[in-house]
């Protein structure tokens, strides 16, 4: 199998989807000849033309709504937000329109729209270009929220999102765009709503998403040398969430740590903790549940502070060691 970067895998998914279905088109800011702020659309405009790879004015509310309206009218639009932070300008159309339209109309319309959401810190872009807002959207019934961590899943999940009859937001951590991994050729779907056990272990379950999966895997490698076996569950889908995989893993390891880049309080870790506490896995727990999340602050500019604002490998190693050794 050949290796592709995360960005190349997304590009390939777009290419395959647009080739297969002429209803599919992508719109966004600077996605045409510029190729997208992170290079995901690349040369697609030359292959599919400006009508299907549409540069938009800088108008997040209008274009998000236009994507929703086009979806209801029989097209399969994909809207790239240049940064997911800008979705704040489009909240109305995502939350009040896209998410609710099917329900409000008695199930008589589908809203097959995809919002691509470059997210996350680590690029020095500071508070308004670095957030991880997936929990906001995951709180809204009617939306699906996914967050792949590998190039293979990025491709398979974006294809699944495009073919899904409901609105899907795909969060793409910006630091992942350049990572490489094996990516199958051709068309395939990675199902939405299924977590993936990225590493098996017996001592502690880490539930992580996006870039935190990679940090958790690094931490697991370090801890293995100390005789601690970490199981890493790659969440992949925030809504719907794969309760069964999480519960099964916790029952096996008897310890749970949730690691995510979004702000810790009221984030996805709260949901994972609660669903474990509500389940039969609660009786299996040998330690309190641990959450490692983003700091209670905007993402700062200073590289020192920016690192301090989100979980890092050293901190993860220490926290997991303490958890397993009963020090918390």
């Amino acid at each position: 199998m050949r290796e592709l970067s995360f960005a190349q895998a997304l590009h390939e998914a777009l290419d395959i989807a647009m080739e297969a279905d002429e209803r599919v088109f992508i719109m966004g800011e600077d996605i045409g000849v510029y190729g997208g702020a992170f290079g995901v659309t690349g040369d697609l405009v030359h292959k599919f033309g400006e009508d299907r790879v549409m540069d938009t004015p800088i108008a997040e509310l209008g274009t998000a709504g236009a994507a929703v309206g086009a979806a209801v009218a029989g097209s399969r639009p994909i809207l790239e937000f240049q940064f997911s932070d800008f979705s704040g300008l489009a909240m109305e159309q995502i939350v009040n329109q896209a998410a609710k339209m099917r329900y409000m109309l008695g199930g008589k319309v589908n809203v097959p729209v995809v919002f691509r959401m470059p997210c996350g810190s680590g690029t020095g872009a500071a508070a308004q270009h670095s957030q991880s807002l997936e929990a906001w959207f995951a709180h809204v019934p009617g939306l699906k929220v996914i967050e792949p961590s590998t190039p293979a899943d990025a491709k398979g999940m974006l294809l699944a999102a495009i073919e899904d009859p409901d609105p899907v937001l795909i969060f793409e951590h910006k630091l992942l765009y350049k990572i490489k991994g094996d990516v199958p050729e051709g068309h395939y779907l990675t199902p939405i709503g299924k977590a993936h056990v990225a590493r098996e272990g017996r001592d502690v379950t880490v539930v992580a998403a996006a870039i935190m999966v990679h940090k958790a895997l690094e931490a697991a490698e370090i801890l293995q040398a100390e005789g601690i076996e970490v199981e890493v569950v790659d969440l992949r889908s925030i809504r719907p969430i794969d309760t069964a995989t999480i519960i099964a893993s916790v029952k096996k390891t008897t310890r749970l740590a949730c690691i995510y880049e979004g702000v810790k309080t009221l984030g996805i870790g709260a949901e994972i903790s609660a669903l474990v506490a509500e389940s039969e896995a609660f009786d299996y727990l040998d330690a309190p549940i641990l959450r490692l999340g983003g700091a209670e602050s905007p993402i700062p500019y200073s590289p020192i502070l920016e690192k301090a604002a989100v979980p890092q490998v050293d901190g993860i190693v220490e926290a997991l060691r303490n958890l397993v050794k009963g020090r918390i």
Partner: peptide, 21 residues
């Protein structure tokens, strides 16, 4: 629509779909 102005982008998008199709 319960949102004042909510339909404006939606109609615009429906028109975009008509043009695309």
């Amino acid at each position: 629509n319960g949102i004042v102005g909510g339909g404006l982008p939606l109609a615009t998008g429906a028109a975009l779909a008509i043009k695309q199709q």
